[in-house]
Design a protein around this nucleic acid. Structure first.
Length: 282
DNA sequence: GGGCATGTTAGCAC
DNA sequence: TGTGCTAACATGCC
């Protein structure tokens, strides 16, 4: 379920709990970890991972782009407390839930952390693309990402964009350009900005760049306000999919002009746009 | 059974 | 060096 708004929704649930009654993760002690699919560990063996994380307390929940950052602290008798960060990327199908320890496993459970108070943090991931790292410095994992897509002023956005060439949509999907935009929100932002996904970056006017920056902020914030989008069988959660203007609407009328939405391939990704609202020649 | 899927990366060509 | 293509990761739904 993973683009920036969906990951932000997960982060908020882990920070505050959910209206449905799921407990918050912050403040709990991690007693132990069980790795059911070792390939999802990005930098440690299951044995080392379990040993290093056991006994830490969850201090904070953050998000950078599509990554979750869980701040951990281990009380120390001498020196300062040891600080660690658990980074999680949900990739295509990952999900995280705080549940009672006794709750039955799903068929797709990949990692389980046992918490105090008879709770557990579960990482389920049907497609096994998800990744989990435990590090001292998060930069070791996310240091090469561009600025978070919701935390980039127009000036920085413009200068970064003007340094690039090639087609617009692949640039938006490049996490070293901006972190957090995925296939769905890229299509939605381009439609709102009235820009064809195959427009070259170098062809954009200053006004185009301003509209694009505004559109990115708008669709991401709208996605967060809707608790993200729910995708097929993988993730039931938010309802932003009801507000999609182009994604998944191939052949249906554009809500702005009535023209049928088209689907093409751009950088090998399914791409949805309105040929009338988003002409290739701007 | 083929085609598709919210994501990223390595390897390769130009 | 940057851009962009393919395959790979692995599974499940239509």
């Amino acid at each position: 379920m993973p683009e920036l708004p969906e990951v932000e929704t997960v982060a908020r649930a882990l920070r505050d709990g959910t209206p449905a009654g799921a407990p918050a993760l912050v403040g709990h002690v991690i007693c132990s970890a069980e790795v059911l699919w070792p390939r999802e560990l990005g930098n440690l063996t299951p044995r080392v991972f379990s040993r290093r994380i056991s006994g830490t307390r969850v201090q904070s929940i953050g998000r950078y782009g599509k990554y979750l950052l869980i701040g951990l602290e281990r009380p120390a008798v001498e020196d300062g407390n040891e600080r660690l960060t658990l980074l999680i990327h949900l990739k295509m199908s990952g999900r995280l839930d705080v549940v009672p320890r006794t709750q039955a496993f799903t068929p797709h459970a990949r990692l389980v952390w046992l918490l105090d108070d008879d709770l557990a943090l579960r990482f389920d991931d049907a497609r096994k693309f998800g990744r989990v790292w435990l590090v001292g410095d998060p930069a070791a994992v996310i240091g090469n990402l561009g600025p978070d897509a919701l935390d980039v002023p127009l000036g920085a956005f413009t200068s970064r964009l003007r340094a690039r060439r090639g087609m617009l949509k692949p640039v938006l999907l490049d996490q070293t350009f901006l972190a957090g935009i995925g296939n769905i929100y890229a299509d939605e932002a381009l439609h709102l900005a009235r820009l064809h996904p195959r427009r070259t970056v170098t062809s954009l006017s200053d006004a185009d760049v301003v509209r694009l920056h505004d559109a990115i902020q708008h669709v991401l914030l709208a996605g967060i306000a809707a608790n993200g989008a729910s995708f097929d069988w993988v993730y039931p959660g938010g309802n932003f999919q009801e507000n999609f203007k182009v994604y998944g609407r191939t052949g249906r009328p554009c809500q702005t002009c009535g023209e049928p939405i088209q689907r093409i391939l751009v950088a090998q990704r399914g791409t949805h746009f309105c040929p009338a609202c988003q002409p290739l020649i701007g």
